[in-house]
Design a protein around this nucleic acid. Structure first.
Lengths: 131, 131
DNA sequence: GCGAAAGATCTATAACAGATATAACAATTG
DNA sequence: CAATTGTTATATCTGTTATAGATCTTTCGC
């Protein structure tokens, strides 16, 4: 799957990579058991330090999205609970943002459905993430 | 409205305060036109530096949630668009997290509805311009 | 109007996080 | 075995977060 780094984005690089992989799993761009590039390879491709990639992979492992082999690169291996308290809190804050701005619940839900439709069941696996 | 600081939370204090105010607007805990504590007062109450509170208020002002008077403290004053590209991206990442963990779209939407149900119903008089 | 209170601004500092750069080690693949 | 890869460790640099104190300006209550 295609991974990239947006230097204009204020968020940390390891967080950007983490989000791209999670969205890649959701859209089906990368499936269970498939491999990500090796740490050193991805670091070379993106022209960043391999520690930064290692940190992203380590975060994905801690969150239960991948397992990191000794020489095989990281492979997708989803495990653990879906709805953690932290996840619910983040979702609540995001929904509150739109609601506080005056958006109706029905409109918010419509956008949620729209986004969910771009995931695995909705579209083909050739979906790409947008900036 | 009651504001607090969680030192065990890894997120920045100014971000915690910002999120609490946004959720407070959504739930109706604080309404349009109502005032937040003054910067110095809130800093004293929470035993934190007033610069940190000032940063939270400034962020809320930039995001279009409050206006900061010269002596009155900050008052709720919502303006601007609800669904920015950044907001949609954050929502997409959060939804992808649950979807990638195997949660069904219907279950995700159910939780969204559950959260939205805890927000303010109907809205105040200045909620919408259309009848 | 006067003075106190509050926001705004500025500088300084300490602690922490993010990212880079090397180096060395362990394990596994071919 | 040898090369590749993940892991670990150290060091450095930068930016962010938070605190601290000082000063200025505005504005509200008296």
């Amino acid at each position: 799957m295609l991974l990239y780094v947006d230097l204009t984005d204020g968020r940390p690089v390891y967080q950007q990579l983490r989000d791209q992989v999670v969205e890649g799993i959701a859209t089906g761009a990368i499936a269970e058991g498939e491999r990500l590039p090796t740490i050193r390879q991805l670091a070379a491709d993106l022209a960043i330090n391999f520690h930064t990639v290692a940190r992203a992979y380590d975060l994905l492992r801690q969150e239960g999205f991948v397992q990191v082999g000794r020489r095989n690169g990281a492979s997708i291996c989803v495990r653990g609970e879906a709805a953690s308290p932290e996840w619910r809190a983040a979702l609540r804050t995001t929904l509150a943002h739109a609601y506080a701005k005056g958006m109706a619940s029905e409109e918010i839900l419509r956008i949620c459905r729209e986004i969910l439709a771009t995931f695995q069941k909705g579209g083909t696996s050739s979906e790409t993430t947008l900036a």
